[in-house]
């Protein structure tokens, strides 16, 4: 039974997301659209599963939802801070800095989500990853203390992502 489930839903979260995207695209919240979205959500992951062999198996949707809400809140708060810096801080008082973040995450998907989170929370842009994937290069807009930024990213985002992608 579980083998049949795994064969039919190689990636249950993707099935759900595809169905929701189809409903939103049609702008029509009805049973017909939901069923058709579910059909698409079953067919597309099934047909593309071959090209994504090492997909993360233990993915926690509940914790991911909490993480998304946390990141949205951070985006709103930090955007106001960056807008304030842009409008009031003169160029000479700005202290941009490169920050190197040693990564504990190893899965490419998890590193991608972390890099996207760092870029979306304003004040930091993830610029590059080292050739073995063990370090992340981050540029900060105004960081008097680069070590504090590094520690905050590691505690606030990476620790949560480690629980999501097990």
């Amino acid at each position: 039974m579980t083998r049949l489930f795994n064969w039919l839903f190689p990636h249950p979260a993707m099935t759900l997301i595809l169905a929701i995207v189809w409903i939103i695209l049609q702008n029509d919240l009805s049973y017909g659209m939901a069923v058709f979205g579910l059909i698409l959500g079953i067919i597309i992951p099934r047909m593309t599963a071959v090209w994504w062999p090492d997909r993360p198996s233990g993915f926690k949707i509940g914790k991911m939802t909490a993480y998304v809400i946390l990141v949205m809140w951070d985006i709103m708060v930090a955007n106001v801070q960056v807008a304030w810096i842009v409008l009031t801080r003169p160029n000479s008082k700005l202290r941009p800095a490169w920050i190197i973040i040693p990564l504990d995450l190893r899965q490419p998907e998890a590193i991608t989500v972390l890099a996207g989170t760092i870029t979306l929370t304003p004040g930091t842009v993830s610029a590059d990853v080292s050739n073995t994937g063990h370090y992340l290069l981050v540029h900060a807009l105004d960081a008097p203390d680069p070590d504090a930024v590094r520690d905050e990213i590691k505690q606030r985002y990476e620790a949560r992502l480690k629980e999501i992608f097990v």
């Binding site: 985006i75 807008a83 842009v86 409008l87 700005l94 979306l120 304003p122 540029h139 807009l141």
Partner: peptide, 22 residues
């Protein structure tokens, strides 16, 4: 604010911050 940030910073990397997010 994003467009102002694009115009007024003087380093290529700091210019990246304002328009892509704000």
């Amino acid at each position: 604010v994003g467009a102002i940030g694009l115009l007024r910073f003087n380093d290529a990397m700091t210019r990246l911050h304002a328009p892509t997010k704000v």
